[in-house]
């Protein structure tokens, strides 16, 4: 049932089944382009459960087909995107969401950009401070007023 469809990183793949694009039966698509676009947007955020890393829209697995059809029925029935997504999550859990929800479990995931930026800024800040301090420590000691006067006298003469 698993179909493998795509590879770019490496060539060592055993692609098992031919790559055919997901929607092999156009009659399942909605005639109304606006509704169809909505259905596609919802489906592209849902994971095909029997495949590895494809969306419902991108897969031609049987289950993906059924779920595509359910999405379209519900879109036509006037249910909101949120309701349709919730319907799917109720059945398959948050695993079906390609964009994981923000919850305690995913704090580190969603926080990763902020954490990385803060960490980078902190490293840069401390490195700058240290560099300043070391530069100041190794800088020549400024002349005392006495020495300054002597220097000026020497320069004048």
């Amino acid at each position: 049932m698993r179909r493998l469809c795509f590879a770019a990183g490496l060539a060592i793949l055993l692609l098992q089944v031919a790559p055919a694009f997901a929607v092999s039966d156009p009659s399942e698509l909605l005639a109304n382009p606006a509704l169809e676009a909505r259905a596609e947007a919802i489906g592209s955020h849902l994971r095909c459960l029997v495949c590895q890393n494809e969306s419902i829209e991108a897969s031609d697995a049987g289950l993906a087909k059924d779920i595509r059809a359910i999405i379209r029925q519900q879109v036509v029935a006037g249910r909101s995107d949120k309701q349709i997504t919730a319907y799917m999550v109720q059945r398959y859990g948050t695993f079906i969401l390609l964009r994981p929800p923000f919850e305690p479990l995913t704090v580190l995931l969603w926080g990763s950009p902020v954490i990385a930026l803060l960490l980078g800024a902190a490293i840069a800040f401390f490195a700058f401070r240290r560099q300043r301090r070391e530069a100041a420590a190794s800088a020549p000691i400024p002349l005392s007023p006495d020495e300054q006067a002597k220097l000026e006298a020497l320069l004048r003469s």
Binding site: L49, L63, I70, R91, Y92
Partner: peptide, 11 residues
């Protein structure tokens, strides 16, 4: 296969 989907069946 719709009842199966309501059960969350994936194969």
């Amino acid at each position: 296969g719709r009842v199966a989907i309501n059960w969350g069946l994936y194969g």
